[in-house]
Design a protein around this nucleic acid. Structure first.
Lengths: 358, 358
DNA sequence: TATTAGCACTCACATGACGAGAGTGCTAAC
DNA sequence: GTTAGCACTCTCGTCATGTGAGTGCTAATA
């Protein structure tokens, strides 16, 4: 096991490197902190840390740089210490208090939303901005997977001849509309009867369940039911079929200002990775079941494009059901305490918004 | 006035430069085309073209590069010739026929939309992608300014206690929903009466007109009207108040692959410019009234951030009313014939989609 | 035994010199 | 009016060189 001193040196290097992405030398460490040792001693410690794979040298006789494993060690220690930044002798606390930033931003959002009455689409979009602003990295918010949401009601409105607009409301405040074609002979009365039926039948169940139920019905008893209901089922089927592969992203451009993305190849790689909705969804979807804030550092995600990026994610819930995921993406050299705090706060905010709106 | 030969040399240089953004030398021109003159003669012509400001030299004794004015000359000649690319002796026609690209893409979109029944939000999103793919630059689509759209009907649906969801349908297929707070004592019957009233009163008028009418009423006769109607007006007011400062953008990342954005500063500048919704809206909004395809080259837009970018834009219409704008943004060194063609086609497509859906 | 001073060594990076190459402008000949 | 010829200019890549930051190792020190 590593002794306390080695850890402190590791943390010092990580923090310094996060602050400025240049290889950290032994002399620098002694100057910035007050370990009470000479550079030579620090050098020995650094060599040891390199041996265990927590630090790396970009080239012989340069300063040291944290490895993914080093960040992992640091983050794990953060979690063990209840997110308190570890002690390092002589550290200057120059950090502006980032906790106020998010308080203020979320306060503004909730005030703004009061008038809008918790339209969740608004919430998600606003909150994505807040997340990226506050973390200074890319903010991502996955709205509730449509299938997990709870059917509140559906309405059908005649629209231009043979179309109806199906408006689907869920308990979570998510609203979907779809234009679908229907038999032009259906009157608004017919439509009303259909919606009455659907609302009575399915209210309070998740869209997942409803889909399953619909399929069962359509196969089992297809000829038996009366025309209206079979139509209702068809319409409902159509209304429930949306892709659900959308999510909110914000802050991509600000990320470009980081020195980590000084060369164009990196920017492109990053943009490509984040644009890859499919991969992103797969990755974040896996986290929906997890508890608390999750951190994926560089190669840990085993996605080649993300090798230089870290993800800090958390689920938000409705009651005790996890509904969706929010995340911050930034360079592996990320201000983890800040990012973790932001993600946690924002996830809490959404959870609260969801429960208060029921 | 310039003689034919000078023009051809200008066009040759512009086309060559568009093909590959490196200063074009006299020798190169004689090799690639067959003017039948020696490099020395071409040099003389080039010097003349530089004198009138159509070409520029990055540094003494480098090849020539087109200026904004040069592109403008080229584009104007395109317009004069009905978009036919000008004649240049000995040009190889190696261009793959780009007209097929867009045909194919738009075909796919319309097939896809048939089932979805012309949900305009879908149309705009799809079409933005097509535009950026086909042009290979950034595609931008401004949906109809909400105020210009025509009220079709409004529906109010009770939702969780004191909220109602207001669903606003326009003739243009644009659907807006807003959650608004209402007096909880209003029954669904009351709501129905309100919508009946609003639908009867305002159907077929533009949201602009309606807003004006609402304001007139609210001030003029506020106490006189019965409670329900005053409520109806209040709700309608709320339902009509949305920002409308959103637009669709696609293809920003592909733009980064262009050699024009080889250095990071340019990318950042570009991203910033395009992200600046306010500026963008202002710029494009001005074009709504214009006829046909508009081209803004570099500094012509008099927006500092756009000095290296060109915009090719066109309005789409509903009937003869211009509803919104689409545009392609790329480097001033843009394949103008292609971009103009794409913008024109896509604008036509949207116009058709709008009219066929009425 | 842990720490440190001293020192030789390594490597990236900035600087400047240099030559090759592309392209020009000009002049004189065609 | 056109072109060949030529001197000239400027960029860019390469190479040599020096500097500085930082290391690892060894021997001296507390």
């Amino acid at each position: 096991m590593m002794d306390e001193r080695s850890k402190q040196v590791l943390y010092a290097i990580i923090e310094s490197y996060i602050d400025k992405p240049e290889p950290i030398g032994s002399r620098f460490v002694t100057k910035k902190y007050s370990f009470g040792f000479s550079p030579a001693t620090i050098r020995n410690i650094m060599a040891d840390l390199e041996d265990v794979g927590l630090l790396a040298q970009p080239y012989t006789s340069a300063g040291r740089v944290p490895t993914d494993k080093g960040y992992r060690f640091y983050v794990d220690s953060l979690f063990r210490q209840g997110m308190e930044v570890p002690f390092i002798p002589g550290r200057q606390e120059e950090q502006p208090p980032f906790k106020d930033v998010i308080d203020e931003a979320l306060g503004r959002v909730s005030r703004r939303l009061e008038t809008a009455g918790n339209d969740m689409a608004e919430v998600f979009s606003e909150v994505t901005n807040v997340l990226s602003m506050a973390s200074r990295y890319v903010g991502i918010v996955l709205p509730p997977r449509p299938e997990k949401t709870t059917f509140n009601r559906i309405d059908l409105i005649r629209y231009r001849g043979e179309h109806v607009v199906a408006i689907l409301l869920t308990d979570e405040g998510v609203i979907k509309n779809r234009i679908i074609k229907v038999d032009p002979r259906l009157s608004q009365d017919d439509l009303n009867r259909i919606t009455d039926y659907l609302n009575a039948e399915y209210s309070g169940r998740t869209l997942d369940e409803i889909k399953a139920a619909l399929i069962r019905r359509m196969t089992q008893e297809k000829a038996l039911w009366d025309l209206l209901i079979s139509r209702a089922i068809g319409i409902c089927e159509e209304a429930l079929s949306f892709s659900g592969d959308e999510f909110f992203v914000s802050g991509l451009y600000d990320l470009m200002d980081l020195p980590d993305f000084a060369d164009i190849a990196r920017i492109r790689e990053m943009a490509k990775a984040i644009k890859d909705k499919h991969m992103m969804l797969g990755l974040l979807d896996d986290l929906v079941s997890a508890e608390g804030v999750q951190v994926l550092i560089g190669r840990e995600s085993s996605v080649e494009e993300l090798k230089n990026l870290s993800i800090v994610a958390s689920t938000y819930k409705e009651g005790d059901r996890p509904m969706g995921v929010i995340a911050v993406i930034g360079p592996t050299r990320m201000d983890y305490p800040r990012a973790i705090y932001m993600v946690d706060r924002v996830a809490g905010f959404i959870t609260k918004a969801l429960s208060s709106s029921v």
